[in-house]
Design a protein around this nucleic acid. Structure first.
Length: 287
DNA sequence: AACTACTCCTGGAGGC
DNA sequence: TGCCTCCAGGAGTAGT
């Protein structure tokens, strides 16, 4: 699903469009999405205004004027579409159902009506997404801070910090480590592949085998791919395949297509059950 | 510590 | 057209 760049891009759009708006109606079509904190209902957000939209890792946080926050994790296939009164869409998350298709969709879980006649739809074709309603000062009940590593956007994510974290788990392989939210908060399957390709490192290299120079390369590659996604548009994948012509991804979902760097055909294999793409020439397992 | 397997779900693609 | 299988931008838990 949406990884950090997708969630951050969505956050920026929603912060602009939602801040100051009042929620005038809330419909819960699929109760399954509301997990944890029993006793809370979606009706508690009606009448409150949005005071800000934040993000931690892949969690989207909508702070309200009544001391509550909506916390959304889009998981694999969650999607948010905000439709304004002119019928224009601000959309983010999973591309299925296609942006612009009629809403609500069969798998739409939540509909929020705003006081400017815009409507927010939260849809998830796989019903894995989660929504929590919690007091803004008690979000630790919802967001598992102890299981979230360093934020990738901002000053905390340095090469030294990456090295420190990787060296704690020297026998771990790079792909599972980079997918581990307790190590780095925000990467998912696509951006891990993109980052490893950018650093010219094989997904099965062990953390302990990396030189300082290679860790520096990995840090720069992660930074570069996240920055590129935030600046030029997030990775576009539909049904596991890269969308032709999109800036990102450059390697994920492009099996058999030429490596953008050397032209060798990109190969696909499985690592911890996840489809993994490498350039066999640029990313060699031996150092 | 690190790995595998399994779970939650639906839908799109491709084979026949 | 139908039927089948496989796979999927996440993450928690259990078992080895």
């Amino acid at each position: 699903m949406p990884e950090l760049p997708e969630v951050e891009t969505l956050r920026r759009g929603l912060a602009h469009a939602l801040t100051g708006r009042q929620i005038v109606k809330a419909e819960l079509l699929k109760p399954k999405i509301l997990s944890g904190l029993p006793g809370r209902t979606l009706l508690e957000v009606v009448g409150a205004a949005v005071v800000g939209v934040r993000r931690r890792a892949k969690y989207l946080i909508v702070d309200l004027s009544n001391g509550l926050s909506l916390v959304i994790h889009l998981s694999l296939a969650g999607q948010i579409v905000l439709e304004n009164s002119a019928g224009e869409h601000l959309a983010g998350g999973h591309p299925v159902p296609a942006y612009g298709s009629p809403l609500p969709h069969r798998q739409t879980s939540v509909i929020l009506d705003l006081d400017d006649d815009s409507v927010l739809y939260l849809t998830d074709i796989r019903q894995f997404a989660h929504l929590w309603i919690a007091p803004t000062d008690q979000l630790s009940e919802v967001i598992p801070e102890a299981r979230l590593g360093v934020e990738l956007v901002g000053p905390a994510f340095t090469a030294a910090e990456l090295a420190r974290r990787l060296r704690r788990r020297p026998r771990g392989k790079l792909k599972p480590l980079l997918l581990d939210q307790a190590l780095l908060a925000g990467l998912g399957n696509i951006y891990v592949d993109e980052s490893l390709w950018g650093a010219r490192l094989h997904p099965l290299r062990t953390a302990g085998s990396l030189s300082d120079e290679e860790i520096g390369r990995l840090h720069a590659a992660i930074r570069e791919v996240v920055d590129l996604a935030l600046a030029k548009g997030v990775a576009q994948i539909v049904n596991g395949k890269a969308v032709p012509g999109a800036t990102l991804p450059r390697i994920h979902g492009r099996e058999g297509k030429p490596c953008p760097l050397c032209g060798q055909p990109i190969e696909k294999f499985r690592v911890v059950g996840r489809g993994t793409y490498v350039c066999p020439s640029c990313q060699r397992i031996e150092a």
